[in-house]
Design a binder for these strands. Structure first.
Length: 210
DNA sequence: CCATTAAGATACT
DNA sequence: AGTATCTTAATGG
C-alpha cells in the first residue's frame, strides 16, 4: 500500500524498522478534505495523528469570540498537544482544522503509551515534537507581542502560501482577519497597502504573492 | 432579475 | 488599530 510506503519514506530517518512496522500495523489511515475540523475545544482525544501529507492549522480561541492561528502542522509532524492531552486524559485546549487535503496515520493512545516504553526512537520523536511545538509557540507569542498587524499579516501570507505550496491563496479578507483575530477592514486596508507596494495582487477571493 | 456576500471607502473612536 | 456604516462589485440561483 502506498500509505505504508509514505510512513517509511517520511519517518525513516526518525524511527527504526520495528517501529515503522508497528505503525503500519496499528495505525488507521485517514484522508481529510480541506477545512475539516479534526479536534475541537473540550474534546477528549483518543488517538494522535502523524501527518503524512497536507497541512493542519492549530487555532486557539479567545473567550469572547475570534480564533487565533498558532501554527501549522506539516508533513512529518505530529501534534504534541494531543500527545499531552491523551496521556493526561484532559480535554483539548485547541482546535485543529485541515488547511489542505490531508493524509494522516492515527495512533491509538494506549498503543502510543506502549511504544514509549518499547521504542527509544518513538520516545525521542515525542520529546522532539514537544520541542518543535514549544518553539513554534514562542514564535507565535513573539509575533503577536512585538510585531504590528502589517508584519503579522506578511508572515501569515508567507507561512500560508508555503504550507499550501502555492503563490495564490483562495481566502477571503474575513477569513484572514479571523485567523489573526482582527477585523476585516483592517486586513483589507493592509492588503491594499501591500498591493500598492507591489508585493501582492488582489482579486476577489484570492491573493497572489510576488 | 434578486439575494447574498466580498471588498472598497469614509469617517469616527 | 478597531468599529460602524454605506457603496460597489461579483456570484449564484
Amino acid at each position: 500500500m502506498e500509505k505504508k510506503k509514505a510512513v517509511k519514506k517520511i519517518f525513516d530517518r526518525f524511527f527504526d524498522k520495528d517501529l515503522i512496522d508497528a505503525i503500519n500495523q496499528s495505525a488507521s489511515f485517514f484522508e481529510f478534505e480541506e477545512d475539516e475540523v479534526l479536534i475541537d475545544y473540550g474534546q477528549y482525544i483518543k488517538s494522535i495523528p502523524l501527518l503524512l501529507d497536507g497541512a493542519i492549522k492549530i487555532l486557539r480561541e479567545d473567550p469572547d469570540m475570534g480564533d487565533l492561528l498558532l501554527y501549522y502542522l506539516e508533513k512529518g509532524d505530529s501534534c504534541a498537544l494531543s500527545m499531552a492531552c491523551c496521556m493526561g486524559h484532559t480535554r483539548s485546549e485547541i482546535r485543529a482544522i485541515t488547511e489542505t487535503k490531508t493524509t494522516v496515520a492515527m495512533i491509538p493512545t494506549d498503543t502510543m503509551e506502549e511504544w514509549m516504553q518499547k521504542y527509544p526512537s518513538w520516545r525521542f520523536f515525542v520529546l522532539n515534537s514537544y520541542h518543535k511545538r514549544f518553539n513554534e509557540l514562542l514564535m507565535a507569542v513573539d509575533n503577536i507581542a512585538f510585531n504590528n498587524m502589517e508584519q503579522r499579516l506578511e508572515t501569515y501570507l508567507l507561512e500560508t502560501t508555503r504550507v499550501n505550496n502555492t503563490h495564490t491563496l483562495n481566502k477571503t479578507h474575513r477569513e484572514i482577519a479571523n485567523e489573526l483575530n482582527t477585523s476585516r477592514v483592517v486586513i483589507s486596508r493592509l492588503l491594499k497597502k501591500l498591493e500598492n507596494e507591489n508585493k501582492i495582487q488582489l482579486n476577489r477571493n484570492s491573493i497572489t504573492l510576488f
